[in-house]
Design a protein around this nucleic acid. Structure first.
Lengths: 197, 197
DNA sequence: TTGCAAACGGAGGCAACCCTCCGTATGGTG
DNA sequence: CACCATACGGAGGGTTGCCTCCGTTTGCAA
């Protein structure tokens, strides 16, 4: 699923074709991505670009060369996250239907929890976001369908419904992990078909 | 529960003692609150103060006289919302346990939906927020307890758990009201005790 | 080693926002 | 009506962030 040459059609989301080739450029590119991830987690989408460059230890000019617009930087970070999420779906595919769905949704939560900022920007429409949403759907939908076919998940829930419910849960950080667990359980119970007896 | 003189102990949250007395001042005060509500809904907590003054049709100086800090303005708007929410709990008290709880939670959602900004700030600690959180608890807790006593709501859920679950649902606006309804139903189902057969 | 395309850093001009200060206007009371 | 405490508006100084531009540095291929 990961192929050596970064440009294979149908491979990872195509934004990656952009990754620079020269050694120093590439190094800075990665540093910027990491710094941005950090800054978004702390300050939300409105994190200052100059702060990001500072964190990365590069000049502001370098940031702009790699990511001409704020949106470009944001999208690149986002794409990374989405890829990880999609990979998780593959890994869970072997489990029984409900376990696979629940496991993936938990993963979804932990991804959304650290990256509040990501959710904030999901509205903005851009081809990249559209692609990513589709990628998430392709990864998660089969899990939901399977859980519905096996009678575990309620048949009237759409994939989007489920993401909204589960994604909302961790909109704000939980001080107590046990509470996250309780709330998440309630959410999953809301998705599950009620047992007959 | 609402008393004519604004300063009675145990009456509405005491921030309101601050409301100005002169007619023009009072008018501007209200215009600023309304403008801020609007701005927060559109731009989140980081809405520009100058924009708020502009919307209200008053000078920036006037804004600062009434609300010396950003926090002051924010809190005043917030307190208004919380009061409405508390009033709703009283009004619903006559219904059967589950209906009362579910009704209040729906109200809670609609309050949170328009005011994304409010949720954003729930973390910040300040005496006013603490008071408001307590007021919300005082209003809603009894509804939950009653629904738990009657066997409708799951006994292992804390009030805070419930608010998190339901509040998260509408973190992002729903284009389709029917979807909001579906998702909300799932959330409420997660809170409800599963019927025995 | 050498040469140059590619990449780097950050100064600087511009815009938005924050908040203070003060001269002007006005509601309400005597 | 006249007075003044109260309230008003917005100019202006300071800060921060955005983004462009260009002189300097560096990877790498020949």
């Amino acid at each position: 699923m990961t192929n050596a040459d970064g440009a294979a059609p149908g491979g990872p989301i195509d934004v990656f074709a952009r990754r620079p080739k020269r050694a120093d450029a590439r190094r800075n590119y990665e540093k910027l991505l990491a710094a941005a991830r950090e800054a978004y987690a702390e300050a939300g989408v409105s994190a200052s670009l100059e702060d990001i460059a500072r964190r990365a230890g590069v000049g502001i000019g370098t940031l702009y060369r790699h990511f001409p617009t704020r949106q470009d930087l944001f999208e690149s970070v986002y794409v990374d996250e989405v890829e990880a999420l999609c990979r998780a779906a593959d890994e869970l595919a072997g489990l029984p239907p409900w376990a696979a769905l629940a496991g993936w949704l938990r993963r979804f939560v932990s991804y959304a929890a650290t990256k509040r900022a990501i959710a904030e920007a999901l509205n903005h429409d851009s081809p990249v976001f559209a692609t990513c949403r589709k990628a998430i759907g392709d990864a998660g939908q089969p899990l939901l369908r399977r859980a519905q076919d096996s009678g575990d998940a309620r048949p009237d829930a759409s994939f989007d419904d489920v993401l909204r419910l589960v994604g909302g849960v961790t909109m704000y950080p939980f001080a107590d992990p046990a509470q996250l667990e309780r709330v998440l359980t309630m959410a999953l119970d809301g998705i599950r078909v009620r047992p007959a007896g």
